[in-house]
Amino acid sequence: MNKTINQKAWYFVIPVFVLVAFNAAIPLMTVVNYSFQETFGNNVFAWEGTRWFKQILLSERFHASLGRQFAFTFIILLIQIPLGIAIALTMPKKGWGVPVCLILMSMPLLIPWNVVGAMWNIFALPDIGFLGHSLNAMGFDYNFTQQPGDAWFTTILMDVWHWTSLVVLLSYAGLNSIQPAYYQAAEIDGASRWATFRYIELPKMKKVLTLAILLRFMDSFMIYTEPFVLTGGGPGNTTAFLSIDLVKMALGQFDLGPAAAMSLIYFFIVLLVCWVFYNLMMKNEAQS
């Protein structure tokens, strides 16, 4: 066989290479570069090896913000997933209620993130905000700028308000793809509402739910804008999640080396969790 060899097709790959280089590889490599060196600006660098990585991994500050990050993500998943499913279950399946509900549900998703933060900041202000003022009027000592518990409560409430819709829309799509015959079969069997949910709706929603959990995990784990505008990480450091802490270190303290090391560690944690999650998902897929 005489094969003609034509490598011209590689030229078509060049634009992608350039694009990926500029938007991913080069910035990432800059960060890698910083993470192994010490710099005081003026392009003067001194080699530091893995010192920053060790420092970050051993620092209590990092442990604390990582802990806060996992706690936050865990709490919002725990609220948003069941709540999203519950709302999706109660949404109408036909008639004029469908577009109304869908539009209402999509609204929070369409609002820019910093606007969400600003909105909730004003909404929750103890003296003039509707939520803050009402809570205080009801006798609760509520002040999210001074009390850590209140700050967490407000941040979580804001995230639930902002993102539960995503879970709702995904679950709703999953529910709508179930053929009515399944419900009838369950009805004929005499299955209870709970059994119908447990053995028909939930298994049928498995795919969209894994997707929802994955998306919500990534988004909440990387959350920055909304808490930055709402609490700025405060009071103290109590709502300084990983990304907020990272920006404080990089831009506030100008500790570029440790900040670069921290971003890489942060990046690997996200990557690792997604990889584990993805594999679990695929394993489930292969089983069924």
Binding site: A181, A185, I188, Y199, I200, P203, K204
Partner: peptide, 20 residues
């Protein structure tokens, strides 16, 4: 109600409980 009647039904689509 259907639960009280003693009947069973088979559909065009293959309806079974997916994780049973």
């Amino acid at each position: 109600k259907v639960q009280k009647r003693n009947c069973s039904m088979v559909y065009q689509q293959f309806i079974n409980y997916p994780n049973y």
